[in-house]
């Protein structure tokens, strides 16, 4: 509505003759000022480029540096792997039951027969209920028969003269009698087991 209201009043007024045609004046737009190139942008752009370049170089140097570090660590890891392998080779077979048993038997330990159990609820003794036998049910020291080539040559910890396959030769007792014959009875039934209960 307001548009029509402003447009109408002129039409209703009688035309008036002007003495002279009015010169039409209009505001000329201010001539565009010549833009000065923004130096700042340029500097920013160039700096940015340099920064990116520098950062990339830094990263690249760091990566290269790291790769040397990795290389030296890899070398170290390899050395440690070798060490581990060497140690594992040294230990191979030492945990085997025949080696353990031969060591224990060399100390005079025996494998006893039936076990006995104490029932905690009433203190009852179940099973054989006897003292341990002095004779081992098997003889892993003098008659070691379960082969293990990994420790076949390894001396026993408890008896350095023996291995799992070969018990030490029986010791000849020192001649204390000064030439008088005092030889002990010959061993006929295998070697005596040291009894160190």
């Amino acid at each position: 509505m307001s548009v029509e209201a402003t447009a109408r009043p002129l039409a209703s007024v009688a035309p008036r003759r002007d003495a002279a045609p009015r010169r039409r004046l209009e505001v000329v737009a201010e001539p565009e000022r010549r833009r000065r190139p923004r130096l700042v942008y340029g500097i920013v752009a160039v700096l940015g480029a340099f920064l990116i370049g520098a950062a990339q170089m830094c990263l690249s140097i760091l990566t290269t540096q790291t790769s040397y570090e990795i290389s030296s660590l890899t070398q170290q890891q390899r050395q440690l792997t070798w060490d581990r392998q060497i140690l594992a080779d040294d230990l191979a077979g030492l945990s085997s039951p025949q080696y353990l048993a031969a060591n224990a038997a060399a100390l005079g330990m025996v494998i006893d027969e039936s076990p006995s159990f104490v029932r905690l609820s009433d203190g009852a003794l179940l099973g054989a209920g006897q003292a341990a036998s002095w004779i081992s049910t098997i003889d892993p020291y003098n008659r070691g028969s379960v082969a293990n080539s990994l420790v076949a040559e390894t001396p026993l910890v408890t008896e350095p003269d023996a291995t799992i396959v070969a018990p030490p030769a029986p010791e000849t007792p020192a001649d204390l009698t000064g030439g008088v014959s005092n030889t002990p009875p010959p061993i006929t039934e295998g070697l005596p087991t040291p009894s160190t209960h």
Binding site: G93, S95, S96, Q98, N148, L150, V151
Partner: peptide, 8 residues
């Protein structure tokens, strides 16, 4: 291959 327990 290694067999720690040998003939066991």
């Amino acid at each position: 291959r290694t067999y720690p327990d040998g003939a066991v």
